[in-house]
Design a protein around this nucleic acid. Structure first.
Lengths: 342, 342
DNA sequence: ATGAAAGCGCTAACAT
DNA sequence: ATGTTAGCGCTTTCAT
């Protein structure tokens, strides 16, 4: 009959190979204390039966799993997809399995996802861009090695990998200033994560260049529509003739909205106005005029996260806060100021 | 001391509440055969201890987990992100946990991810856009309820959820014809999944409109660069004066590349040439001239996948092949033919 | 080098 | 309504 059999167990393999379960267990994990002949017979039995260890049983007995739990706050955000990529590559390189859970970028969803992850008793947990409250995160960190990516948390129970947002903003402003711009306006990220640092970085950089008086911030957000709206407001407020020479936008999505609104008004980029983004999202390289932006080493961040987790597993008890450096990617939306007032 | 305690177990809760483990187990899963007073005491104990069930133990004992394994072939593809979203929403609605594994769109990676998933002994597995060979998939389907999203497999051991690619192509061609176009060229998806069906659907639709002789296919792919290259080739081959009136591109990413190349050549869209994509990817709505495209109900596909899995769990033994219908989203890149030869 | 036996934390009959 | 008793499939002393 078309009967789905119970999957073979360690015991089945042991019987098939004519040895004890303990020996199979050892052999499976590559112990050296198993004779070559036994090892071969066991391998054969495994292949013949199509045996696959039951991780639930293994984890239960071993009190330790080769599983890394990764909470992705928002799957739609390609930023996290990149981080997860680096993460899983590094995990695989060390024989670790990655389990992903997603929280739809809201606290309740993330809390539930974190619960699931914790229930699986993983060897470590990585939180990418969590919107979760810090108390919940710290509580989790007491149970399992935990690393937070893209959010800084002051706690020595957990590690973090973040990017230097200030430096990123400085990179953007410096580039624009070098091109000859002076009136540089910032379309910020509103209340989004990292928005405050990018804003502060911008203000500092402007002041450093003696341009503090020309600094101006218009409220934005991290979505295209936020960028569109902000630009729309800017156009209404200052009018087309009084536009700044350059716009430093808090992230690439928002910058796409900015460009769309600008295009609608017939304003030429970068001829009339320069635009620079932040993140080096996939979309930045896909526009007909490709976006100049601040690159974040996302894959590297994922790899560093795994390294931190492994460090904890190896016994490190002190917090490790990695801050990675962004870099500038000059593409097509920035140029020296043209006829417009710079 | 700063000691991370062993997490509390069912036994700890039972002791704390002064009842047996079995009763706690029942109460935890909401059995009605538990008195109100016991239930309260147990709830208290759970809260006091911060108890969280060990899913490894639970799954091991129950031979069944509330876990759905989802294999995402490529996290970078927002298409899958959407599907997973629908999937996890539906799963959550039925008290199921979703575990994601990713395969980086290559067979070896997917095979490893599938192994991990199977080892976790989930209640069901959903494969989204797998590039895996069908034999491996069928083998997995013998062990656990399995549904394949976005790829059709002839097997009655597994269910599938796909979109009607032919209908999608027909929608695109019909729209263009209604606008008055006759010379409609297809930039295809090359060897990509679904590309063949979209191509066939295009050819059929052209013939149905009596436009079989005007049908032309240029080799493309599912990436922006593929679209860019294809358009570049087209421009060289037929020359700018002899361009068709409309381009039906196999997916939105490719369409972005097409638009970029067209923009570079100073060809106006949709004034001089209409362009229509396929997928309704996020990017389609983000361009300065938003892309007209064929929408795929991605979230719904995710929900249907979970429904199929639940059907199998409930005992259904026959294959269920769901084919969802696409729809047309008219935006800014299509219009009636202008001065160019239509 | 190999085996016997005792759990890991939970569920599931079967009692009462 | 509640408790007892076996396991689930694996790892891990501790023997030999």
């Amino acid at each position: 009959m078309e009967q789905v059999d119970r999957p073979p167990t360690l015991e089945d393999v042991a019987r098939e190979a004519g040895v004890s379960r303990a020996l199979v267990s050892l052999a499976l994990r590559g112990s050296t204390r198993v004779s070559a002949s036994s090892r071969d017979r066991i391998q054969d039995a495994v292949a013949r039966l199509g045996y696959r260890p039951n991780l639930n049983a293994r984890n239960l007995a071993a009190h330790l799993s080769g599983i890394l739990g990764v909470l992705v706050s928002d799957l739609h955000n390609p930023f996290f997809a990149e981080v997860v990529d680096g993460l899983s590559a590094e995990a695989a390189a060390h024989g670790l399995h990655v389990i992903l859970a997603t929280g739809h970028a809201n606290q309740a969803g993330e809390r539930a996802a974190l619960e699931t992850l914790l229930s699986l008793r993983p060897a470590g947990i990585a939180l990418t861009g969590p919107v979760l409250d810090s108390a919940t995160i710290e509580r989790a960190a007491a149970q399992v090695p935990l690393v937070v990516v893209n959010r800084l948390l002051r706690s020595d129970r957990l590690d973090s990998v973040t990017i230097d947002e200030y430096a990123g903003s400085a990179l953007a402003v410096d580039h624009l200033v070098e091109l000859g711009h002076r009136r540089i306006t910032h379309v910020d990220g509103g209340a989004g994560a990292g928005a405050a640092s990018r804003r502060t970085g911008y203000l500092r950089a402007m002041r450093r260049h003696g341009l503090g008086d020309l600094a101006a911030v218009v409220r934005g957000g991290f979505t295209e529509s936020a960028g569109w709206d902000a630009t729309d407001r800017l156009l209404r407020t200052v009018g087309r003739r009084d536009l700044p020479g350059a716009l430093f936008v808090a992230n690439d999505y928002s910058a796409v909205g900015v460009l769309a609104r600008l295009g609608g008004a017939g304003i030429e980029v970068p001829g009339e106005l320069s635009v620079i983004g932040f993140d080096d999202a996939h979309v930045a390289g896909m526009l007909s005029t490709q976006l100049t932006t601040v690159h974040q080493p996302k894959q590297a961040m994922g790899r560093l996260a795994v390294a931190a987790l492994r460090g904890r597993q190896a016994g490190r008890a002190t917090a490790q806060r990695q801050v990675v450096a962004p870099s500038l990617v000059v593409r097509g939306t920035t140029a020296a100021p043209g006829q417009a007032l710079s």
